[in-house]
């Protein structure tokens, strides 16, 4: 026989609205007042789209077959993360960050032997990031 689980919640009267989120603006500033984000260095070399990257398994305790990819964000997160738009041009969209994640639109670059990436939080809210672990180019 299949087990049947049931959850019962004691009803609670809630007064008031949700408290505003700290540090995260609930609305976008007018375009003319939004902070301008510096553009990418012109020395960036865009890797060929056919270049494969392969996550490298971390040592113990991630031996259960898990992969961890960590991206250091070069700006703090106290920006408005509510609008996500597609990065056009020299982008490698959805390479490792599939749609549905907050930072779903990304651009990957290869510079000085390191991959770096940018994450777009809106039409003018690029947050540069740097992959700090586990991404290595596949030989050949």
């Amino acid at each position: 026989m299949k087990d049947t689980f049931s959850i019962f919640l004691i009803p609670i009267l809630l007064l008031g609205d949700c408290a505003p989120a700290p540090k995260i603006g609930p609305t976008l500033l007018p375009a003319e007042t939004r902070p301008q984000v510096e553009s990418s260095p012109t020395t960036l070399v865009i890797p060929p789209m056919s270049l494969n990257v392969e996550p490298t398994l971390l040592p113990t305790p991630l031996e259960q077959g898990l992969v961890l990819v960590s991206v250091e964000l070069m700006k703090p997160l106290d920006l408005d993360p509510l609008r996500f738009e597609t990065v056009e041009g020299n982008s490698w969209n959805h390479a490792t960050l599939p749609r549905g994640t907050p930072f779903s639109e990304t651009s990957f670059y290869f510079e000085d032997g390191h991959y770096s990436m940018q994450v777009e939080l809106g039409s003018d809210r690029l947050i540069p990031g740097r992959i700090t672990t586990t991404m290595e180019p596949r030989p050949g």
């Binding site: 392969e54 996550p55 898990l66 992969v67 990819v69 960590s70 991206v71 997160l77 960050l97 907050p102």
Partner: peptide, 25 residues
């Protein structure tokens, strides 16, 4: 799982998942 983490005054975006899943481009 995809999440944000903060340590040493720096924010990180991290994904932990199965090797061979959609991690691979």
């Amino acid at each position: 799982v995809a999440f944000f983490g903060h340590k040493n005054e720096t924010w990180y975006f991290v994904q932990i998942g199965m090797a061979g899943s959609t991690f691979n481009p």
